[in-house]
Amino acid sequence: MKIAEINRQDEMIYPGHNACPGCGAALAVRYLTKALGKNIVLVLTASCWSIISGMPPLTALKCPILHCPFPSAGSVGSGVRRGLNARGHHDTTVVVLAGDGGTFDIGLQALSGAAQRNEDYIFVCYDNEAYMNTGMQTSSATPFGARTNTAPYPLYKEGEKKDIMQIMAAHTVPYAATATVAFPADLEEKLKTAQKVKGFRFIHILAPCPPGWGTESSDTIEVSRLAVATGFFPLYEVRNGTNWKLTVPADIKSASLSQYLGLQRRFKEMDDRRLNELQHEINRDYQRLLDQVAKVTAETQQ
């Protein structure tokens, strides 16, 4: 089942859900559930998806959704996995879904614990780079220079976006990957790869948020594409914390950082100094990634 394939029956998400128009998070979950198939259980922590999934007696997904408190996602996932095992559901894929807050900030301890225990489930972080459900407050996933409602003009987010992938790699989890909504084929590939791996798997999905980022709702895909092209959000995977592979290279010639930021009102007040600082950060991190990939390539050739 390819997610680009047109088949209503295989869509796991019902139309009529509560996401805002152009929601990247809705797309991300649409893709991931379709890629993973029907035999999944979704553990859902506090995030926009707590709302998108609907108010019982309604539901937006064709699979069990277990809501849980904000910091608990990583641990509830462990329990669900082990509980299902105890009841003989070894084939069921457990997916823990959290936003950037539930992953980078309040959920980090549980995430780290589960990753370290190598719990057998897929942790998916859909990252819209701030607390969007509560109305755009700074999280540690908010990029440097962005304006938020807890860093209103003339303030801006100080400090860099936390590099969650390096943190997960440092846990030497069997599989970790980044993905974004403009590249559903790549996203699908990674989720299907993840589904076959045993142990802890981490997928970091950049999910643009039109109201929070101040983009046009129609620009969700475009802005996601530019995030990749500019090297701001590289698409790659890492196995066992050491085996790095770039899946969609940046295309710096075709896209500039100011073009990417220009689509987003949260960067409206970005001056050149800050732009350069952010560019420097991106270049440094992208180069580090390239080095990590090159090291792997060199080792395999030996």
Binding site: S50, G54, P56, T59, L61, C63, P64, I65, L66, H67
Partner: peptide, 8 residues
């Protein structure tokens, strides 16, 4: 399917 303990 089941939306367990979602918004009320």
């Amino acid at each position: 399917p089941g939306n367990l303990h979602g918004l009320s």
